[in-house]
């Protein structure tokens, strides 16, 4: 994913960083314009599209019945898949998912799973025999940096608008998917000694490492992943956690709480 970036541009971004500035004039704690649309695909049980600057991510949720895992007989199954569609960047190629795609999908998945966002006990139809399987398919339509935060937000928004198609299976009325939590993922890029939220494509290319932190509404952390080769100090880790929780609370209030009420 790291696009080749001219040394000049790298120097430019670093020199800006020293002056506490960013290429597009944002502050270190500032997101690009963020837009969330839900119910964009009527065929899907739930869907959401997030536009973050020029980054566009579309998430569709489909539900199917299937058998539960042997170690969790009364629980539904969550399967998250992320596709780096070749439409999104000249860097992406068709074919089996690359490790970045797998990693990001699993980070989103862990955030949703570990925060207990979905009440998976309510997805059980018959214990040990039949449960709902929730497929969260993340499509990257345009990669202009920070697709992971956009994916996290789109995924949770899509789940919040998902309807369980009971009628289709003759199981009674359709009901909204039971949700318990609203995890929000925030990615911080470490450039030089600074941490900045919502890295743009160029910032992602020059940053030393990224840290994604998924946090819940109670201010706890549900998932974390360091992505990239450079090390982090412990102080940076703690700084990142505080910053991510702060930003996640902001985004949750602005975008997700309205969705929760409208249901």
């Amino acid at each position: 994913m790291s696009e080749i970036i001219a040394t000049l541009k790298k120097d430019y971004i670093y020199s800006l960083m020293v002056k506490e500035k960013r290429q597009d004039g944002r502050g270190f704690k500032e997101f690009r314009d963020l837009k969330l649309e839900t119910n964009v695909i009527s065929k899907a049980e739930g869907s959401a599209k997030v536009t973050l600057g020029n980054t566009q991510v579309l998430v569709g949720v489909k539900l199917q019945t299937g058998t539960p895992f042997p170690d969790s007989q009364d629980e539904g199954v969550i399967i998250t898949n992320l596709e780096l569609n070749p439409i999104a960047s000249p860097e992406f190629e068709p074919g089996p998912p690359r490790e970045e795609a797998i990693e990001m999908a699993r980070v989103v998945d862990r955030g949703i799973r570990e925060s207990g966002a979905i009440d998976i006990k309510k997805l059980c139809i018959t214990v040990g025999e039949s449960v709902w399987i929730v497929f969260i398919d993340i499509h990257i339509l345009n990669d202009d940096g920070n697709i992971i935060d956009a994916s996290c937000l789109a995924a949770i928004a899509a789940l919040m608008t998902t309807v369980v198609p009971n009628e289709q299976q003759g199981l009674g009325e359709n009901v909204p998917l039971a949700m318990k939590e609203m995890p929000v993922g925030i990615t911080l890029a470490k450039i030089g000694s600074k941490l900045m939220v919502d890295p743009s494509l160029d910032e992602e290319a020059v940053c030393e490492t990224k840290l994604t932190i998924v946090s819940s509404s109670d201010g706890s952390v549900a998932g974390m992943q360091k992505m990239g080769p450079a090390p982090l100090t412990e102080a940076e880790l703690f700084e990142a956690i505080d910053l991510a929780i702060e930003k996640a609370t902001e985004i949750r209030e602005l975008y997700l709480e309205g969705l929760a009420k409208s249901e």
Partner: peptide, 16 residues
């Protein structure tokens, strides 16, 4: 210096 961090579950910043 931390070269790998992953996490899943439920932890407060103090617990971390």
């Amino acid at each position: 210096e931390i070269t790998l961090v992953q996490m899943d579950g439920h932890l407060t910043p103090e617990e971390i």
